[in-house]
């Protein structure tokens, strides 16, 4: 197993390289230049040139990329164009809030969705099932920004139960309680899709598992419904559900961008938006590698989990 995971990381290296090249090309293809933002309208041609040279933008693209790569492998991700601070500390400072938001979202989503899916499947065809399936349909269809703005309007502006945004009260050092209060709305918005999606998937898998012959065997043994569900149903239903976890993780990276923007959450998502607006190439490259890495980790995690849950799967 260790050997397998090691191999997976090694084979991922060329993929990560290709992704950085792709990202580099796309960022440079976008119209506009970093220098547009850092110089005053009355700057002379010489001043613009000097800025470009200072940022290394006077070099041909391949040279720029190689230089970036050369430094990146040593752990130096460069200096942010817009703030002139090193990229790494910026990313790290934004990582915490994003991990808190994403972690809470996934945990919350699965804790809610897996039981809902099971209930929906076991009550198939009843009004409970119809209600849950209907809600799940709404949940996967509703756009994040719409739900976010709606919730802010109702619960923050009208009822004043939760703050409209941010991660803690200004000027106050964030207590856990304050952070939790700020987390509620963004987590609900981000979770909507994952809860809905996982509920639907769990329901379908559970229905399928209950049609399997080994459930019939378990019933014929005279086991109680509860035992059949916990010992025979859920374990087997989790195998295909792991796949969904594998696609949820990377998707969350994208989902967080919009949600963090709406809720002024000081995480990587908002950093991404500002970096795009400012053509802050070193920041964008760093975020790209990080995202690619998350996807890679998610994939390896999923494969390892398969082996943990399903005794038929062995890697060596």
């Amino acid at each position: 197993m260790k050997k397998y995971v090691g191999k997976r990381f090694l084979t991922a290296v060329p993929v990560l390289l290709m992704i950085t090249i792709g990202a580099f090309i796309m960022i440079n293809l976008a119209p506009g230049e970093p220098t547009d933002l850092y110089i005053t309208p009355d700057a002379t041609v010489q001043q613009v040139e000097a800025t470009r040279r200072a940022l290394g933008l006077d070099q041909p693209y391949p040279v720029q990329y190689i230089r970036w790569l050369g430094r990146a492998v040593t752990g130096d991700l460069g200096i942010s164009f817009s703030t002139r601070y090193p990229v790494l500390p910026i990313i790290i400072s934004r990582l915490g809030p994003t991990i808190v938001l994403m972690g809470t979202t996934l945990l919350f989503s699965y804790i809610v969705a897996i039981p809902l899916g099971i209930i929906s499947a076991r009550k198939q065809g009843t009004w409970v099932d119809t209600f849950l399936t209907g809600s799940a349909f709404v949940g996967v269809s509703i756009p994040n920004f719409f739900l976010g703005l709606g919730l802010i309007y109702i619960f923050a502006v009208q009822l004043n139960w939760f703050p409209t945004g941010g991660m803690q009260e200004l000027g106050v050092d964030g207590s856990i309680f304050s952070v939790l209060r700020h987390l509620v709305l963004p987590v609900i918005v981000l979770s909507a899709f994952y809860i809905a999606n996982m509920t639907r998937y769990m329901r379908a898998t559970m229905i399928q598992v209950y049609g399997e012959n080994y459930i019939r065997t378990a019933t014929a043994k005279g086991l109680a419904q509860k035992v059949i569900l916990t010992k025979h149903g859920i374990r087997n239903a989790l195998i295909p559900v792991i796949t969904i976890v594998g696609t949820d993780l990377p998707r969350l990276v994208g989902g967080a961008i919009v949600t963090e923007q709406i809720f002024q959450w000081p995480g990587l998502g908002r950093l991404t938006i500002t970096a795009i607006q400012q053509r802050d190439l070193p920041i964008l490259m760093a975020i790209t590698i990080l995202s690619a890495f998350v996807v890679l980790l998610a994939n390896i995690f999923v494969d390892v989990m398969y082996a943990v849950v399903d005794p038929r799967i062995k890697y060596d």
Binding site: Y214, R216, A220, G222
Partner: peptide, 19 residues
Amino acid sequence: RGNDIAMIFQDPMTSLNPT
């Protein structure tokens, strides 16, 4: 079930819990 009246089915390949 399983105590007084037990059953064996046709498909041994799928009648056991794989996990």
